[in-house]
Design a protein around this nucleic acid. Sequence first.
DNA 1: GAACTTAGTTCATATATATGAACAACGCAG
DNA 2: CTGCGTTGTTCATATATATGAACTAAGTTC
Lengths: 249, 249
Amino acid sequence: MRIRQLDKALDLLDLFAKDKQPLTLTSIAAELDMPKSSVFNLIDTLSRRGLIYETRQRGGYYPTPRLHEIASAIMEGDVFLLNIHDELERLASDTGETVLLAARQGAEVAYIDVVESASPIRYFARYGERRPLYTTSTGKAILTSYDRAEREKVLSSIEFVRHQETTFTDPARLMAELDVSVERGFTLDRAEFTPDVMGIGVPLVHGTRRFGLAIAGPLYRMDHQRHRLARLLRAAADRMQRIMENADL
Amino acid sequence: MRIRQLDKALDLLDLFAKDKQPLTLTSIAAELDMPKSSVFNLIDTLSRRGLIYETRQRGGYYPTPRLHEIASAIMEGDVFLLNIHDELERLASDTGETVLLAARQGAEVAYIDVVESASPIRYFARYGERRPLYTTSTGKAILTSYDRAEREKVLSSIEFVRHQETTFTDPARLMAELDVSVERGFTLDRAEFTPDVMGIGVPLVHGTRRFGLAIAGPLYRMDHQRHRLARLLRAAADRMQRIMENADL
DNA sequence: GAACTTAGTTCATATATATGAACAACGCAG
DNA sequence: CTGCGTTGTTCATATATATGAACTAAGTTC
């Protein structure tokens, strides 16, 4: 179950991040579609914790530097993700496509870092979005990081659903595809979950942590140059792997 | 009314900022004194938004770079607070005492930025903490930033409470004290709210925005050198004022 | 400077939600 | 590979909380 008021609080932070200006209680209520009295409680909670303040009497509320301080302290604890973020940016800029970093969450992958392509036509994915493990290039990449026995085990616990024409629904065929991917050096997702979207992925492993790194974009723009993109992807992954070796979590 | 689950969520972020390592659902429940099922909802909400993820199966949860990204975007909207933070740091280091930036919130001031002294004996204040306008050096500093007429008006709407022996409880006497402060170039708080704590403050004004900037520490360490500290404070305030002129909110 | 407009605040109560307890799933040790 | 100690998950219901409506107060306009 989602905590609605927490969701609203996060919506509010997103709103500040987007607008970058003080907002009045009333305007927040309108924007987030909440009663004023609820926004009052929200503001009360955040301001008593020193996260926001009233910039001047009736002049709207805005966050203090506190959130940034907390976020910075937290990032210190994950030097790895902090450091490789720059590599994601670079890869996105080199390829012109959206770059995704995903972690396995049970039978799904969740995107834990996303750098969007600058193209007007691009794959639009959000932090926290999830996909079935077996439909995405990142998920498949994570699967290839397990040895065959473990891979079998993971697949056996999964329920396959056909999302698109191309979706793999047979574990055996998927296993074969994964073998091919290992051989080839990268995994593919040919519109197996989202129509017209192609993904190219590789695994990133550090000790027991496993990530999937991928480039994703429109099929028509990616398919014909998949080997070039894969080369860039592998090069970036190698650099990240090196960064990983020098960091710990 | 505070939103309890939001408070808990913020407690969790603080916990990550402190521990800087992945935490299991169960350990979070213990640490925050919450039922596991409630922590489950909390984690569910945060992870579906891409703010945290499970670092590996049963390996604990940790924030993604998302929060940092949001916080950074928000700070872009308040270049002023972002820029002067360094000055606060500098002032704290130069004086060896805690430095506070406060904004008026009705009849109170709230600390919106705090840099703590490195001394083992120091004034310990937190973001978001509030004090009556008339008891603190920051509050008095903000009061001196109004012209006398407006100042009278503000004071007339305040209910005075004696917190300590030295607390001003008579508006007329406070007005006189404020006049003296303007003359002297800085406001004082001699343990008027918190025992043994002394504060030295100056106002910071940009258009209609008013802040109070202060140094605070133990009376015995501050009183004898208050003029030296005030000089450092004024110099810092001047630098900030210049930064202010080149920024906008 | 009085009237108006818009902003923030309070509070009783309907209503959504936090939670205890029982369950399921994972990973580790032997 | 099997059993055991944890960890994460579900769900009905007691309980805390979100909220509509009525209010106060600040700011703005004429």
